[in-house]
Design a protein around this nucleic acid. Sequence first.
DNA 1: TGAGCAGAATGGTCTAACCATTATAAGATA
DNA 2: TATCTTATAATGGTTAGACCATTCTGCTCA
Lengths: 245, 245
Amino acid sequence: MFRAAKQNKIFQDVVDQIQEAILEGRLKPGDILPSERELKEMLQVSRGTLREALRVLEQKGLIHIKLGVGGGAVVQDASYEPVTESLALLIRHQKVSLTHLAEFRAGIEGEAAAHAARQINSAQAEHLHSLLNQAAACIGPGEDQTQTFLEADKAIHMHLSAITRNPISIFVHKSIHENIDRYYEQFLVMDVQSMQENVQDLKNIIDAVVSGDVHKARGLAIDHVHRFTIYMQGVLSQNQNNSDS
Amino acid sequence: MFRAAKQNKIFQDVVDQIQEAILEGRLKPGDILPSERELKEMLQVSRGTLREALRVLEQKGLIHIKLGVGGGAVVQDASYEPVTESLALLIRHQKVSLTHLAEFRAGIEGEAAAHAARQINSAQAEHLHSLLNQAAACIGPGEDQTQTFLEADKAIHMHLSAITRNPISIFVHKSIHENIDRYYEQFLVMDVQSMQENVQDLKNIIDAVVSGDVHKARGLAIDHVHRFTIYMQGVLSQNQNNSDS
DNA sequence: TGAGCAGAATGGTCTAACCATTATAAGATA
DNA sequence: TATCTTATAATGGTTAGACCATTCTGCTCA
């Protein structure tokens, strides 16, 4: 029924003031706040208190503090990085597993594919095909190209979500992807056959999207993520066993 | 190819040390860190620097700082709040439209319903029905119960996502809902007919979920969100016109 | 013309003090 | 004895002023 009557902590008040100024657009990305010595006069607080507030704002990703002359607190553009970071923290806390990530990813990936199937245009279709070719080009004998392949794979998924033109969808995808990638950073190697199966999966999805088959696109995307996840978990547990022995 | 060679900022080093201690379990939730005056001796830093570090850790949700004697930095259990908060900040910062929010919500709401249809048990079905009854009970002549109804409506959606038992799904839902609510906080009133249509929608979704019809559940959930959004936009623009005149 | 140096502005850190909040223990009172 | 009040001390919150470290700018000099 009631809310906290007042803000006792001064630094919190400073955080709120500056945050509001940024969110309301009175401060725009690239703007530089006055120097700490000026700000503390304007806000009538000590420099220590002001700096605590700036640290919080920095942690929130709203500002970036530059050193040296001409430096200062630079207002940042909105970024999904804080989301990714706090998500990563949860994962390290073991509150979120790879399975959770993959399951959720399958859902939004399917939805993105379904959405894309409804509104894709020819230029976007063209781009998807060229990305697919890049992915296919990574496959072959010779040095390991797992990283390059995964990059290309990721680019295709990101472009599918980009087609929806929905910023929320795009940065949620990014956060989830980045955190999944963290699991794979451990010298993961895919064999040629798996890559080929993946490319075939992607081709099927893209075909369904381009042909406008909403349900098929969704289903294929979901299945693809599931298959990919099961494969990766297999490789990871195998690596685990090897390093145990 | 290379990464930053070293950590120049002392406070960052302090953050890293304490964060690692928490993530590795050397510090457990509920533990209280030494007082600032002790910590600054242990870490060989000034109190100001230490406090900047503590503020960052607090912002990350890793500690909570209590005042007074016996107070200090209490280690927190992992929480979804920082993710939700940064997500909300991103949404506000990008000035994401209600349409974007609703569109994305329709997708994950549909996916949650589909997922729930696959694995719902009788106790959960029971709970859903009781929530549905609560929502229905809000409808009737007399004082406006829009808020109560929306609460009940929200509870049903949240429970559907809770059935998936996927923490990511749960807090993404929560963030999206919270941010959508921000648009409705302006003395919104629903008429009786709309509420009844909504309850019917929810009943259909729940029936589909309980009967395990995955595709139907997904489709109904998506349609429901779309209808609800269109209705709300209509009411909002009408309010807008009224306040203009 | 270019390299190098000096100065100034700015964030980073330190010290030392005092204020505000709160749990606990001592004391006063019924 | 039991309960309320009060004093005390420990802890975070805030302030002030100083100095160090980094970096841009422009000047000097070869």
